[in-house]
């Protein structure tokens, strides 16, 4: 994680002036240049990926509804237009994988796609067939990342995933959890197993991961995906009535979602946050959080203090 991304106030003015032309005064929509998107490094390989990805829980589960599929295609297009890469889903999310596959096909499978899904079923044979089915639904030949969803039958699936990785059938493997579930067991797996990615919940209101999971990830060189950055939208609802602090502009934040996302991706151990949305304007707004300066440690502390005071 590049510390050069952190700024002090003195540097801020320069950076702001440079980034303002790209963000603030352009069109009503967020003006994004993919090349300027903040990227983070996957520790195991040194590969860089954009620090903001896209989750698909609820938002992409629209079934066969053609109008909503068209809407989601536009959302995904906005994501890739803004330089996004990692798209995360799961067989648990209803029709999300199928809908993502449909959208990707409409967009002719954008080059920057970093495909990530999960296995969520007991038993080896069912796990394998579920992952094969996911590939069909996405319309791709290989996933970049396969994760064990909420540690379901993790010992069985981890052996399968390691085997698949050795054979080149997947590039990265990992485990996931959310909302503080089973952190003890999760941490143990992080310490003892040869995995590349971990995914869990972390946001300005739920910072439990700072105690154990994030330090272990840094220590073990694991890439970290952060799910539910807005706590299922409740953080945005909670803060919406309050103004952003004036100093939020120092880190290029114009809205609460950007404020919340910047907080997450500025943690040195975090590789990527995956907010989910069903609206193009929200996608553009979110992606703008991966532009410009990131808060340093002092600024992060200030952000926490301010949010706690609301």
């Amino acid at each position: 994680m590049s510390h050069s991304l952190f700024v002090n106030r003195r540097d801020f003015v320069k950076t702001l002036l440079a980034s303002c032309s790209a963000i603030s005064f352009a069109t009503p929509a967020w003006s994004l240049t993919p090349s300027s998107l903040i990227k983070k490094t996957i520790p195991k390989t040194g590969e860089q990926i954009p620090s903001l990805g896209m989750g698909s829980w609820i938002t992409f589960n629209v079934g066969p509804d053609t109008q909503l599929r068209l809407d989601r295609t536009k959302v995904l297009k906005a994501f890739f237009d803004a330089g996004g890469g990692l798209v995360d889903s799961s067989p648990m999310y209803g029709s999300s994988e199928e809908v993502i596959g449909h959208c990707l096909e409409q967009l002719a499978f954008p080059k920057g796609l970093f495909s990530a899904t999960k296995v969520w079923t007991p038993l080896k044979s069912r796990g394998i067939s579920q992952m094969e089915n996911s590939m069909k639904l996405w319309g791709i030949k290989r996933f970049d990342l396969l994760q064990i969803h909420n540690l379901v039958d993790w010992k069985t699936h981890l052996a399968t995933l390691k085997d698949m990785k050795e054979k080149g059938l997947v590039r990265y493997i990992g485990i996931t959890t959310s909302h503080g579930r089973r952190h003890g067991e999760f941490a143990q797996i992080m310490k003892t197993q040869d995995i590349d990615f971990v995914q869990f919940t972390y946001n300005i209101d739920d910072r439990e991961a700072e105690n154990q999971l994030l330090p272990i990830a840094q220590d073990k060189g694991l890439a970290v995906i952060i799910n539910r950055p807005f706590q299922r939208g409740s953080l945005i609802d909670r803060f919406a009535a309050h103004p952003l602090p004036e100093w939020a502009s120092q880190i290029g934040c114009k809205t609460w979602p950007q404020f919340l996302l910047k907080f997450i991706i500025s943690h040195p151990a975090v590789t990527c946050a995956i907010p989910a949305t069903s609206q193009v304007s929200h996608m553009q707004e979110n992606m703008a959080a991966a532009l410009g300066p990131l808060p340093d440690e002092n600024m992060r502390a200030r952000m926490i203090t301010y949010c706690n005071s609301l």
Binding site: I58, T59, N61, G94, S178, H179
Partner: peptide
């Protein structure tokens, strides 16, 4: 155990908009 620790909200996989539109489509 891994299935039992889901909250009810975790099992709500769709938005109200999608739900109501699905009734119309049906």
């Amino acid at each position: 155990e891994t299935y039992l620790d889901y909250s009810l909200q975790d099992l709500l996989l769709f938005s109200s908009k999608v739900y109501f539109r699905s009734l119309i489509l049906y």
